[in-house]
Computed example of a mutant assay.
Amino acid sequence: MNSFKELPDISSLRREYTKGQLNRQDLPENPLILFENWLIKACASSLPDPTAMTLATVDENGKPYQRTVLLKHYDINGLVFYTNLNSRKVFHLNKNPNVSLHFLWHFFDRQLMILGRIEKLPILETIGYFSKRPRESQISAWVSKQSSHIKSREILEKKFIELKNKFKNCEVPLPSFWGGFRVKIETMEFWQGGKHRLHDRFVYQLKNKVWEINRLAP
């Protein structure tokens, strides 16, 4: 017996993408300028989690995994996020530093895919960010043995209260198993939705320290 609820015909769900265009003559030579323009607009629009990005890694057998992380900094050197160093994603990164990032800003009919290689952040840079986190987030970094099996949520909550009391009269120190990573960008592909599925796609590829720009068929 089919136990799934009856759904509408999802094959017919669609809409037109009419919120913008990308033209070659308008593209900056450095893709980070376009990325910054898109990110600023997403942040200013009150979209939920405008800095959310899907991080794709592969395990030792080439099996892909994806999860959402938050962008915490960017500059000419790359894009930065933080995580538990004992997590599944970091185990993958230690084996294969090649990653893909993906931003999706539905409200503007925009997507951005990034390919690059990971490098671990210096400890001082990580400390600088960790010290600015909300205190509860600092404590939570100590609580979770990310990606490990746990029996119940109550275990997490009990550990949180225990550590909250432990650090009550002092600053929360940086856990040795928590840190940051920078994605060194090699490719950036910008997607702007278009009418009749004739989307605008442009790919920037870094070759000999120069960005090569090409339009892709949608």
Score class of each variant (00 low, 15 high):
residue 3 S to C: 15
residue 4 F to K: 11
residue 5 K to G: 12
residue 7 L to P: 05
residue 9 D to Q: 13
residue 10 I to P: 07
residue 11 S to A: 14
residue 15 R to Q: 15
residue 18 T to G: 01
residue 22 L to R: 06
residue 22 L to W: 04
residue 24 R to A: 06
residue 24 R to Q: 13
residue 26 D to M: 12
residue 30 N to T: 06
residue 30 N to M: 06
residue 31 P to M: 09
residue 37 N to D: 09
residue 40 I to S: 10
residue 44 A to M: 09
residue 44 A to Q: 11
residue 46 S to G: 12
residue 47 L to P: 07
residue 47 L to G: 02
residue 47 L to E: 10
residue 49 D to F: 04
residue 50 P to K: 09
residue 50 P to W: 15
residue 53 M to T: 13
residue 54 T to E: 03
residue 55 L to A: 04
residue 56 A to H: 02
residue 57 T to S: 07
residue 68 T to C: 10
residue 69 V to E: 12
residue 70 L to T: 14
residue 72 K to H: 07
residue 75 D to S: 05
residue 76 I to S: 08
residue 77 N to G: 04
residue 79 L to I: 10
residue 80 V to E: 00
residue 80 V to R: 01
residue 81 F to Y: 13
residue 82 Y to H: 00
residue 84 N to A: 06
residue 87 S to Q: 04
residue 89 K to G: 08
residue 90 V to C: 00
residue 93 L to R: 03
residue 97 P to A: 14
residue 98 N to H: 11
residue 99 V to K: 03
residue 100 S to R: 01
residue 101 L to H: 02
residue 103 F to N: 00
residue 103 F to A: 00
residue 105 W to G: 00
residue 105 W to L: 04
residue 105 W to Q: 01
residue 105 W to V: 03
residue 105 W to N: 08
residue 107 F to S: 10
residue 107 F to I: 12
residue 109 D to R: 03
residue 110 R to D: 12
residue 110 R to E: 15
residue 110 R to K: 01
residue 111 Q to G: 04
residue 113 M to N: 14
residue 116 G to T: 00
residue 116 G to R: 00
residue 121 L to R: 06
residue 123 I to W: 12
residue 123 I to R: 15
residue 125 E to G: 00
residue 127 I to D: 12
residue 127 I to R: 09
residue 127 I to E: 14
residue 127 I to N: 05
residue 128 G to C: 04
residue 131 S to A: 05
residue 132 K to M: 05
residue 134 P to V: 13
residue 135 R to K: 08
residue 135 R to I: 06
residue 136 E to N: 15
residue 136 E to R: 12
residue 136 E to C: 03
residue 137 S to L: 06
residue 138 Q to D: 08
residue 138 Q to C: 06
residue 139 I to G: 00
residue 141 A to Q: 00
residue 147 S to H: 12
residue 147 S to T: 15
residue 148 S to D: 08
residue 149 H to D: 13
residue 158 K to A: 13
residue 160 F to E: 11
residue 162 E to R: 14
residue 166 K to F: 15
residue 168 K to H: 15
residue 169 N to G: 11
residue 170 C to W: 07
residue 174 L to H: 10
residue 176 S to I: 05
residue 177 F to H: 04
residue 181 F to R: 00
residue 181 F to T: 00
residue 184 K to D: 05
residue 184 K to T: 09
residue 185 I to M: 01
residue 186 E to F: 05
residue 188 M to T: 02
residue 188 M to V: 07
residue 189 E to C: 02
residue 194 G to L: 08
residue 196 H to Y: 09
residue 196 H to E: 13
residue 197 R to V: 02
residue 199 H to S: 10
residue 202 F to P: 09
residue 203 V to H: 05
residue 203 V to I: 15
residue 208 N to R: 08
residue 209 K to E: 12
residue 211 W to H: 08
residue 212 E to R: 06
residue 214 N to K: 14
residue 214 N to G: 03
residue 215 R to T: 13
residue 217 A to R: 02
